[in-house]
Design a protein around this nucleic acid. Structure first.
Lengths: 142, 142
DNA sequence: CAGTGATAGTTCAAATTCGAACGACAGTAC
DNA sequence: GTACTGTCGTTCGAATTTGAACTATCACTG
């Protein structure tokens, strides 16, 4: 259980650091940053709201809110889904892409400095595998 | 970086599970549960607010709020610190202790089922060490 | 095509979080 | 003692999250 304790504390501390870094670098929150990252990797830089909510692990209402914020900032735009009139596509704008490219290095730096670089290659691999298994279990038994 | 992705998703999913479990078992939130745990382990089952905020990694205002909630529920009480009139001691009540003893098993079960049991003994040890090192780095360079 | 049940996304009120500002007290220097 | 500086915990407003309604649309059945 001490392991879980350490895990929990470290994560919270790291989250705090990340928020701090992103806020000062681009006025972004961590959830907003994650949205930009996922959109940047999606085909056509666009993704359905529900799918986006699933991958970033946010509630539908939280995502609606954050996408609205990002829309106001001009980093994301909304499109109606051509194949489903109920659906909405969140699209990463060019400005959003530029913003992401500007901020990403500093973000990666923080994650690496405090977490990634503190594990050996084998530890990192083992940890990643375990996380993936846990993630799958958590998602499938939702 | 895929490793970090997996960490993040898994953590959020697990948090969600934990919240769900605690809420249905005792109407507690995860931050509240953490407060009870830390108090139960403290000498005299009491702790200074600032110290408590530090160990559970919460802001001072968030802690004030949560302790007030727990106080309303009768699980925690406030005492003025005898050695420092500015200070406040959060004290775990008997009812709080009983509540914790009732809820803890189910909580541990969730953490184990989805995370702990998915790592080998060596992996767990390696991860814990890494987390501790990261925690220390994060705390010292605050 | 009407009817039914599920799904997509939004909206709302309530709860929670954060950071800044605040008043009260401690510790030290003079 | 007085002044200065720092710490303690709380309070406030703004931002964010949650879950439960709600509207619109889809997919399927008859």
């Amino acid at each position: 259980m001490a392991a879980w304790r350490a895990f929990l504390s470290t994560f919270h501390l790291l989250e705090r650091r990340i928020e701090e870094q992103l806020k000062s670098a681009a006025g972004l929150t961590h959830p907003q940053y994650e949205i930009l990252v996922r959109l940047s990797e999606a085909p056509g830089r666009r993704m359905r709201m529900t799918e986006l909510a699933r991958v970033v692990v946010a509630s539908k209402s939280a995502l609606t809110y954050q996408v609205t914020q990002l829309e106001k900032a001009g980093l994301v735009a909304r499109e109606t889904c051509p194949s489903d009139d109920r659906g909405v596509l969140a699209v990463l704008t060019d400005e959003g892409m530029r913003c992401l490219e500007r901020v990403a290095p500093g973000h990666l730096e923080v994650v690496r400095a405090y977490l990634i670089d503190r594990l050996s290659r084998e530890e990192l691999q083992a940890m990643t595998d375990a996380m993936r298994k846990a993630e799958q279990a958590l998602r499938s038994s939702a």
